[in-house]
Amino acid sequence: MKETKQEIKFEEAISRLEEIVRRLESGDVPLEDAISLYKKGMELSAVCHGKLQSAEKQLVTLIGEDGSQAPFNPANGGMRDE
């Protein structure tokens, strides 16, 4: 079963991306395989970027843009009341 972009965890995506980079940097990959690896690497890079942006948004929501921390509110999943 193929994983969707939303199902893969950040750490797994980074690990796979690092492996692709290692393989491409080795120079021992046939051109067709290198192109496929590059495409997969770009997809994984986009997944990682999206997950980092999402995490940043959550932190800004929790901490606030001005750096002040909001009290924990379990009624809305711990998010800041606005």
Score class of each variant (00 low, 15 high):
49 H>N: 12
65 E>W: 06
78 G>S: 10
20 I>N: 05
55 A>S: 10
33 D>H: 07
69 Q>P: 00
77 G>C: 09
3 E>V: 07
34 A>P: 01
21 V>G: 03
44 L>W: 02
53 Q>G: 01
49 H>E: 07
51 K>V: 00
4 T>R: 08
43 E>M: 04
79 M>V: 05
10 F>S: 05
58 Q>A: 14
62 L>W: 11
14 I>S: 01
51 K>D: 01
44 L>G: 01
34 A>K: 07
7 E>Y: 02
77 G>P: 08
37 L>Y: 04
12 E>V: 04
35 I>P: 00
8 I>W: 01
51 K>A: 01
30 P>Y: 07
42 M>E: 15
25 E>W: 00
13 A>V: 05
15 S>W: 04
67 G>M: 08
7 E>D: 15
29 V>W: 05
72 F>K: 06
44 L>A: 03
71 P>H: 02
61 T>L: 13
67 G>A: 02
60 V>M: 13
25 E>H: 06
35 I>N: 10
46 A>C: 07
75 A>R: 10
39 K>L: 15
2 K>I: 14
56 E>W: 12
67 G>C: 03
71 P>S: 14
16 R>T: 04
5 K>C: 03
63 I>L: 09
41 G>F: 09
47 V>L: 02
79 M>R: 12
56 E>G: 09
78 G>D: 11
21 V>Y: 08
4 T>W: 03
78 G>F: 10
16 R>P: 01
10 F>V: 04
11 E>S: 15
29 V>G: 03
31 L>N: 08
66 D>A: 15
45 S>P: 01
2 K>R: 14
59 L>S: 07
64 G>I: 05
35 I>Q: 05
51 K>S: 03
41 G>K: 11
71 P>G: 07
61 T>N: 15
22 R>W: 06
70 A>R: 01
78 G>K: 07
42 M>W: 09
23 R>F: 03
6 Q>L: 01
58 Q>H: 15
55 A>G: 06
69 Q>S: 12
60 V>F: 08
18 E>N: 14
51 K>R: 03
18 E>S: 06
69 Q>R: 09
74 P>F: 05
6 Q>W: 02
59 L>W: 15
45 S>C: 00
14 I>A: 01
27 G>E: 05
13 A>K: 00
46 A>D: 13
1 M>C: 11
42 M>V: 14
27 G>M: 08
35 I>W: 04
46 A>E: 12
57 K>Q: 13
39 K>Q: 14
33 D>K: 11
72 F>W: 12
12 E>P: 05
39 K>F: 12
24 L>A: 08
41 G>E: 07
35 I>C: 05
8 I>S: 01
78 G>E: 07
68 S>K: 15
54 S>F: 06
36 S>F: 09
43 E>Y: 00
76 N>C: 10
65 E>T: 11
54 S>E: 13
44 L>Q: 05
64 G>H: 08
63 I>A: 10
1 M>K: 13
51 K>C: 02
29 V>A: 00
26 S>N: 15
76 N>K: 09
7 E>T: 14
11 E>L: 07
